[in-house]
């Protein structure tokens, strides 16, 4: 195969989208930034990747990315998950921009389900892929209704839902896509990031953009904006904690993935953020790499 054919996609505009589409998305992004947390409807296009695979995030990235950018794409915190690889390749082929695994080097980071562990800076933009942009959708399936609820700031149902959790389970059972309130006004879906990542959104120096392709919505959190996870005085918001540290780098402050290592169900915990983990290991942090929960073989 001709390697040149493999690296560039001829016949398409820079970043795939035509200029009129980019302008339409750019206008939506500007309004999204002006109204933090409000979902701006936009004329989402049919992309060559399926809905649900990040078409919203891809359209946002395509509308902002330029030749000077350095792009990082992660899925579940890792650069080498299949869909992250596929999206990174899409942009490498349609823009020719430099890509990186290094969080610190990236100027644009497209993500699905995680915020990198390393704090982001003012020189970075974080683009989230969003499946369901409407935080009230599970409580009210009708768009006309939820739109009115946002307009009137009628968020009682959300608090009732969270409180019902407490009544039933003794705590709020939502563990990802945990609703937040942006700039004391709009309730917003942070996309299915674990609630562990919610505090990182608050007063983040980087601009955060959210794209939902199938649902045709774009929203944003400007830098240095208050983002509050919903809670109650007697049940304050809290994030997950693990009994273990990363089996590879020993980190005790990162989000851990559970890996099953044998047929008995023994398991170990490793950082979900692959760049964070490898950087720590390069800096000399090591752990024994052994399963932390060992399930003994049943007697023969």
């Amino acid at each position: 195969m001709n390697p040149q054919q493999e690296t560039t996609l001829s016949g398409y505009n820079f970043a795939y989208l035509d200029e009129q589409t980019k302008r339409m998305i750019r206008r939506a992004i500007l309004k999204a930034v002006a109204i933090p947390g409000y979902q701006v409807p936009f004329g989402s296009r049919e992309m060559p990747l399926p809905y649900g695979w990040g078409t919203g995030g891809i359209q946002v990235t395509a509308a902002i990315i330029g030749a000077q950018d350095i792009l990082k794409v992660i899925d579940q915190g890792a650069d080498d998950t299949t869909n992250a690889v596929s999206i990174r390749k899409f942009f490498a082929r349609t823009t020719g921009v430099e890509t990186t695994d290094k969080t610190a080097r990236a100027t644009v980071i497209q993500t699905r389900h995680r915020i990198p562990e390393k704090p982001l800076t003012e020189n970075q933009i974080l683009v989230y892929q969003v499946p369901t942009p409407e935080p009230l959708r599970w409580l009210e399936p009708r768009e006309t209704e939820t739109r009115r609820m946002h307009a009137l700031e009628e968020y009682g149902v959300m608090h009732v839902k969270l409180y019902e959790d407490i009544a039933q389970y003794g705590r709020i059972s939502t563990s990802y896509d945990y609703p937040v309130q942006v700039n004391d006004r709009y309730i917003m879906a942070p996309s299915p990031i674990p609630k562990f990542d919610n505090p990182k959104m608050n007063e983040m120096p980087a601009l955060q953009l959210f794209g939902a392709g199938r649902e045709k919505r774009i929203y944003a959190i400007p830098p240095y904006t208050t983002v509050k996870s919903l809670d109650f005085d007697d049940h304050p918001f809290e994030v997950q904690a693990w009994d273990h540290s990363c089996a590879l780098c020993g980190a005790d402050d990162s989000f851990l993935d559970e890996v099953v290592v044998d047929n008995m169900g023994s398991r170990m915990f490793v950082c979900s953020d692959s760049d964070f983990c490898s950087e720590r290991r390069e800096a000399g942090h090591q752990s024994d790499g052994l399963p932390q929960v060992v399930v003994a073989q049943a007697a023969e």
Partner: peptide, 15 residues
């Protein structure tokens, strides 16, 4: 797309 996106990794949410 949305039905089939469930086969994409959801490690973090599941965790």
């Amino acid at each position: 797309g949305f039905v089939q996106h469930l086969k994409l990794p959801h490690y973090v949410d599941f965790q």
